[in-house]
């Protein structure tokens, strides 16, 4: 067990530092903050709303993340396969799931850094008025969980290709489907021909639905289980796919 923990942390350390080894991390952070800021202030009209909360900020997170998390996750396995380092990694005396987990946690922590950099907005809101900080904290928790789910999916998909661009686009499409699954636009299109249970199943997959509830301050078991099981399931498939695809 201690060996497993240590290998998770060794992989985590390498991967986390790898994000900062190139200017890519800085570019990513700047783009994320600029987009989040632009959406919050200009598109949602943060000041014009005249309300001291962060709803204007959180509303955009699913849409920003469905582009940004695939970008964080795309290199995790595609790059290992392209450069052949996967052969080193998979001949180490450690369980493959520890490597999968270490890589995932590194990407998730990086997302955490990006989110932490948005806290000046939280401070601003407190300076302008007296928001419900519990709701905002819940919003951050929900955002972080959603990021985890998107990243786990992106990491999983990046095992399927040696090409980072293909990994990025495929992951973006899958997360887009997950986000939009609960929208009336999608459900309406399905309802016409699909049985009731199928429409319900698709609706239940909706990230948006769960995300909106948690950003309203409702930290409920189904939401936590939803994001938690998405992450666990994606990582399990990830471990399986790494083994299947490593030598191709």
């Amino acid at each position: 067990m201690t060996a497993s923990l240590s290998s998770v942390s060794v992989v985590f350390g390498r991967e986390f530092r790898a994000y900062f080894a190139t200017p890519l991390a800085a570019i990513f952070l700047v783009v994320f903050l600029a987009l989040a800021g632009a959406m919050t202030f200009f598109v949602s009209g943060f000041f014009a709303r005249g309300s001291a909360d962060m709803a204007a900020f959180f509303t955009w997170m699913p849409w920003l993340f469905l582009v940004l998390l695939p970008a964080i996750g795309m290199r995790l396995w595609a790059e290992e396969r392209r450069s052949g380092t996967i052969e080193l990694l998979m001949t180490m005396p450690v369980a493959p799931w520890t490597i999968v987990l270490g890589k995932f946690l590194a990407g998730w922590a990086f997302t955490g850094v990006a989110l932490a950099l948005t806290t000046p907005l939280w401070i601003t809101v407190n300076w302008l008025g007296s928001p419900d900080n519990g709701v905002i904290a819940a919003g951050y928790l929900g955002t972080f969980l959603m990021a985890g789910a998107f990243l786990a999916i992106a990491a999983c998909i990046s095992t399927l290709t040696k090409n980072q661009v293909i990994a990025f686009i495929s992951a973006a499409i899958v997360t887009f489907l997950l986000v939009t699954a609960g929208l009336e636009l999608v459900l309406g299109a399905i309802r016409g021909w699909a049985p009731y249970w199928m429409t319900e199943a698709v609706a239940a997959l909706s990230v948006l639905e769960h995300f909106q509830r948690i950003t309203q301050g409702l930290i409920e078991a189904p939401t936590l289980i939803f994001f938690g099981s998405l992450i666990v399931l994606a990582l399990m498939i990830n471990t399986f796919l790494v083994d299947l695809k490593k030598a191709q």
Binding site: A21, T22, T85
Partner: peptide, 27 residues
């Protein structure tokens, strides 16, 4: 100990960091 064909390594890592990473992975 295994040297795969083409000696793959993490290009962005300095030699010392890379060897230290492998050493730690090997316990």
């Amino acid at each position: 100990g295994y040297l795969p064909e083409g000696a793959p390594a993490y290009g962005d890592m300095p030699v010392a960091d890379f060897l230290s990473f492998v050493g730690k992975m090997r316990g």
